[in-house]
């Protein structure tokens, strides 16, 4: 199924008891974009990803991913997306291959061995195929995390704070990988981050969440163009954030 928008969310609200985590969120992401959702801790970024990946149901509103409604077609949505949680956890007593084999089969791949090898080759990680994940660093786990997310060739990839906890080298490697996924495989990427530097280096579109409300969405180029020439993205972020505090 093809649709004009990779991600479309309309008036999404999520309440937990008396707390509103997301308030009337409306956003759209075109195919092939790298969308960065910025916001402070607790702004509602993870709730947004949880809803769009069908892990949480919204209190109200609707959304489609690749044209599939998240509430009426959750299976199709999950078939067409890949998801890397903020702190990805694996079955540590299993090898990379065993972990990916299990997850690939659950993604509907019948004989996933070749696909696993292909993905690991793409990630330049094939030499770790038979190693147990328990021996891996955070950066290596994140790489396997990307691997499990793209096994079934999804069209949209959701990354929740992908560089969180990585050392500088790991951040650079992951950034290169995300760019590669977008440029070479044509994946639309939706990433949560609170790091402005990530957005500057990776994203084509940005959105800013504040206290559960999307206060800004535009392309990175337009955003930078619509503020003072000397403003850095940090300046722009605080201007937008500050304007919405008043």
């Amino acid at each position: 199924m093809t649709s004009e928008l990779a991600i479309s969310a309309k008036h999404i609200t999520k309440r937990y008891d008396d707390k509103t985590a997301l308030n009337d969120l409306t956003l759209s992401v075109n195919h092939g974009e790298i969308f960065g959702l910025l916001g402070h801790n607790g702004a509602g970024k993870t709730t947004t990803v949880s809803i769009l990946t069908t892990l949480t149901t919204p209190t109200s509103g609707e959304a489609t991913i690749n044209g599939f409604d998240i509430q009426s077609k959750p299976k199709q949505v999950r078939q067409s997306i890949g998801y890397l949680p903020e702190s990805v956890q694996f079955y540590e007593y299993l090898t990379v291959f065993e972990n990916l084999d299990y997850l690939a089969k659950l993604s509907g791949l019948k004989n996933p061995r070749n696909r696993i090898l292909e993905v690991l080759e793409f990630l330049e990680f094939e030499e770790h195929l038979n190693e147990r994940i328990s021996t891996f660093s955070k950066g290596m786990k994140q790489r396997v995390g990307i691997g499990q997310a793209i096994l079934h060739s999804p069209q949209v990839l959701f990354l929740d704070e992908p560089t969180s906890g990585l050392d500088p080298e790991g951040v650079i490697q992951l950034r290169e990988l995300i760019t590669l996924l977008n440029h070479e495989l044509g994946m639309t990427i939706f990433m949560n981050t609170h790091l402005l530097s990530e957005v500057t280096k990776l994203c084509t579109q940005i959105g800013i969440l504040k206290n559960g409300t999307l206060i800004y969405q535009n392309s990175l180029v337009s955003t930078i163009g619509s503020f003072d020439a000397g403003d850095s993205l940090e300046d722009i972020y605080f201007k937008i954030d500050g304007a919405n505090s008043k």
Partner: peptide, 14 residues
């Protein structure tokens, strides 16, 4: 507790 349930639930299974 391991957090692996998130990986399972993000697959196209119920």
């Amino acid at each position: 507790s391991r957090g692996t349930s998130l990986l399972l639930l993000s697959r196209p299974i119920t």
